[in-house]
Design a protein around this nucleic acid. Sequence first.
DNA 1: TTGTAGGCGTTATCAA
DNA 2: TTGATAACGCCTACAA
Lengths: 341, 341
Amino acid sequence: MVPARKTPTIQDVARHASVSAATVSRVLSSPERVTETTRERVYAAVRDTGYTINQAARSLRLKAARTILMAAPNIGNPFYSTIVDAVIREAAERGYSVLVASRIGDDPNRWLSDYMLSNRADGLLLFDGSLDTNRLHGLRDDGVALPLVAAYDEIPDAKIHSVITDNRLAAKRAIRHLVDLGHTEIGHIIGPSRNQSTNERFIGFAEAMQEAGLVVREEWLFPGTYNMESGTAAAEHLLASGKLPTAVFSGNDEMALGLIHRLRLDGIDCPRDISVIGFDDIAVARFFDPPLTTMRQPREDIGRMATSSLIDIIEGVVPEDEPIHVILTSDLVVRESTRAI
Amino acid sequence: MVPARKTPTIQDVARHASVSAATVSRVLSSPERVTETTRERVYAAVRDTGYTINQAARSLRLKAARTILMAAPNIGNPFYSTIVDAVIREAAERGYSVLVASRIGDDPNRWLSDYMLSNRADGLLLFDGSLDTNRLHGLRDDGVALPLVAAYDEIPDAKIHSVITDNRLAAKRAIRHLVDLGHTEIGHIIGPSRNQSTNERFIGFAEAMQEAGLVVREEWLFPGTYNMESGTAAAEHLLASGKLPTAVFSGNDEMALGLIHRLRLDGIDCPRDISVIGFDDIAVARFFDPPLTTMRQPREDIGRMATSSLIDIIEGVVPEDEPIHVILTSDLVVRESTRAI
DNA sequence: TTGTAGGCGTTATCAA
DNA sequence: TTGATAACGCCTACAA
């Protein structure tokens, strides 16, 4: 219980074990290159001194921080909870730490370059498709491309590694589900337009509508912001438009929840009077009243795969000229917020 | 648009500006100690070379990482979303980065010490009251106490800085609200017992019951785990117990949501047949059906204050022998899940 | 198998 | 006001 006077260094361990610092370093990184006996002595010394490696020194020497940066436009959205968890988990398994950043300040690109170029992080996990592609390419270090994986929200650039979901297809399936139930008057709450995934969902919606021979009515489209309040706003927009659609495809679950809640205030019941399908399958979806029909996003898989891909790239196991493009599939989860007309 | 061959160092900038590296360093940290003219020359050189500081080298030299570690038992819980956001925001404002860790692996303490002692983080924001106090004290560096702030979940140790909420009082107010509505048969879904906040809420519940002259019935107590599934389980427990209470105080909102959902499946309607009050006021609470009455936790304030306190401690503006103890107050938010009997 | 020595990029100290 | 120098703790040639 003697408090350490000072954080022990590799030198202290070396002295303690009567070996050189080099040997200690070797024991720690490649134990097989050291005799059994000295190895044991070093391990003992490590225990005795309570030595832990100094990451700053190690990073400086190795030019690698064994840290990745997860950047999202709004990490405060509960949607990211599962993802953050998966990212941390996967990173930890491979010996990496995770720094998190949210969009802060004016220049959306500056903080990223700061992190990357200052040796704080070895790679970037980007959940924001709205960033300037060129500047991203510009983030270079040592003349080699910055390890970067676009996750969830795609970046329309084939050269950038990405782990995304089949947004367009999923949207089409959502609409087909409604069509199969007999709906012909279908509205759509659109997500924030700066997200590429939003656009993909919108395109899927439009395509499916056309394929079903249905018309997209302008007044049944509403630009939301992915939070519940904008679902409420969408409801008010629809209410004001005079005639309600019989079904609504919401760009995400939260807006769907806001929509259902607000409509009910005016006596419009889901699913009795209107069907609503969401997107994501957030945790509350199945506990809501009515339990929400939605397109389930494999959030955990996104986090895990994006992280492991990024680390693969950092560690050079992925050839630079063969971009990774993982497209995960979303599942239709039918619950009670949609019903036949 | 010429891609840099190599990350420029302070030496490169120095050469570029025809000054010494020391001068460049000075310009960057205390510009007033350098002549206007050289200062300008250095700034220009920084721009030209695209120099960014190497954090690893800086950390090594300064023995400070300008990084804090946020550790929570289950960062995957959406409850933390707002908090993470606030922490990042506050930290960024003071020039700090944020590392996140979740409980991973066997030894809950080991990873923390690893982070701290290895110079990766300068301080710890701990959202987990179940950690061994003594080992926490043992986390020392240079013989001075590890900068540590216990946030949200308190640690029963007066020497540890903390930013928490008035759990016991809040629970009492929740119960009094129910009592004021005429309820006398009140159940409680308890959170995971390893959390101190859980215990505080339970004590508050018990005290308020006693003060109101009500008895706590064993079969109306249910140990949950803070997720919606355990709310469902609580419902089934109550259903099986034969007689339902007329009101339930849930240790958090998510369990309340699961409870309400599950009871409705058996035709027990909230608030018609049973009143439910939650704790936290998570984002969905007001959009749920019925909108949830709950004790609002100032989550953003917790994140912000805990972070700024921690950084104060790191930077030595807080005397070590005067622990910070912030207790934030929770607000009763009356919505529609509770009603007079 | 082990040790010596040099350098990663930065900043603080001391001189000039 | 500015510059030279040393040191932070680690790893890796290279030498023994």
